[in-house]
């Protein structure tokens, strides 16, 4: 059984300039012990999707009525959309789902030491003693590669470098051993060496506790090394999803192919870097038909400009939303 099911998630933001569609009819599931990579250009809706799972989007967010998010916990399923009061949210935010945010400074209270925040969180969400909580916190800090962890335990967030703060946040998010971890660009600001350590740590937790992870990143190398499956987003739409090997080796959607071509690869230094041409359109001016048609090098014709492509099966558990696949051609 899956750990979380997201069905037809659609979310708009009310702004002065009008309604912004940030997420448009997105569906996916994650099983226990499964890691899903969520990739796409900045502004494609990755963070908003992730925050929806804990209903953490700001007050101007409007969820469409057909949006459905079901979290399967030990005590039965939880309908996340129906949770309104902060007290109800405790089931979701209370340690069984953890999120690592893109902005690490925001997740630590400035006036408390890193250690006391970690301990406090463990005391609320587990039945550990203070001593156990302290020991576990120091161990977690050590495991994310923070040297001299017992000293760092007593420091404030502002006393740490950016990379160290990011790791402390990862340690805190992992210490409650959540069922589902949502990690929003957790390693983008880290050195490759520390990134490799953090990835190993996450993999251990997946094996040891069957934790499920949504891993948001724009680094396809990181996805290749961590994820079981990948979902690609563009302008709020999910445009391709499937097993990691399939999607990276045989991408069907022209946008996914573009992302892979844009990546600097070490085994061929002569290969020119090929950006996806053009800029991502403003979410206020979403293109009709296929949202990618303004930048697509393989556009077929009017059908792309007027009709939004539905899903086509492009392999086992692999599907793509592009008219090229509809016509039975490989893109």
């Amino acid at each position: 059984m899956s750990l979380i099911d997201v069905e037809n998630l659609t979310l708009q933001f009310k702004t002065d300039e009008g309604l912004i569609t940030a997420v448009d009819n997105v569906s996916f599931s994650i099983a226990p012990g499964e890691v899903m990579g969520l990739v796409g250009e900045s502004g494609s809706g990755k963070s908003v999707t992730a925050k929806s799972l804990m209903k953490l989007n700001p007050g101007n967010a409007v969820y469409a009525p057909e949006s459905r998010i079901t979290l399967h916990l030990d005590n039965g399923p939880v309908d996340v959309m129906s949770l309104k009061r902060p007290r109800d949210m405790e089931v979701v935010r209370g340690g069984s789902v953890s999120m690592i945010f893109q902005e690490p400074m925001a997740s630590f209270a400035p006036a408390m030491t890193i250690g006391s925040q970690m301990v406090e969180q463990l005391l609320i969400h587990t039945d550990m003693s203070k001593k156990q909580a302290r020991e576990l916190s120091i161990e977690m800090l050590d495991r994310v590669g923070i040297s001299d962890a017992s000293t760092r335990f007593g420091q404030y967030a502002f006393e740490m470098s950016g990379g160290m703060r990011q790791r402390a946040m990862i340690a805190m998010a992992l210490s409650t051993k959540p069922k589902l971890l949502i990690a929003d660009e957790p390693t983008t600001a880290l050195d490759v060496t520390i990134q490799a350590q953090v990835i190993d740590l996450m993999k251990d937790l997946v094996t040891d506790f069957g934790m499920g992870i949504i891993f948001i990143t724009h680094d396809l190398g990181v996805v290749a090394q961590t994820a079981d499956k990948v979902a690609v987003m563009y302008l709020g739409k999910m445009i391709e999803q499937g097993p990691v090997r399939e999607v990276i080796r045989n991408p069907y959607h022209p946008y996914t192919q573009g992302l892979i071509d844009a990546l600097p690869q070490l085994d061929d230094l002569d290969k020119p870097l090929m950006p996806v041409p053009g800029d991502i359109p403003s979410p206020l001016e979403r293109p009709e038909g296929c949202v990618f048609h303004t930048r697509c090098g393989k556009i077929i014709g009017d059908v792309c400009r007027t009709v939004a492509p539905g899903w086509s099966d492009t392999g086992e558990n692999h599907r793509t939303a592009c008219h090229l696949c509809h016509e039975g051609q490989s893109a």
């Binding site: 590669g145 490799a196 190398g221 290749a224 990276i248």
Partner: peptide, 22 residues
């Protein structure tokens, strides 16, 4: 440093030992 670069090949997990500590 080189061996810590994540490979785009999901089956290539890097050959050399990883750098510990910071």
């Amino acid at each position: 440093l080189f061996s810590a670069i994540p490979s785009l090949d999901p089956d290539d997990h890097g050959k050399a030992q990883k750098l510990e500590g910071e």
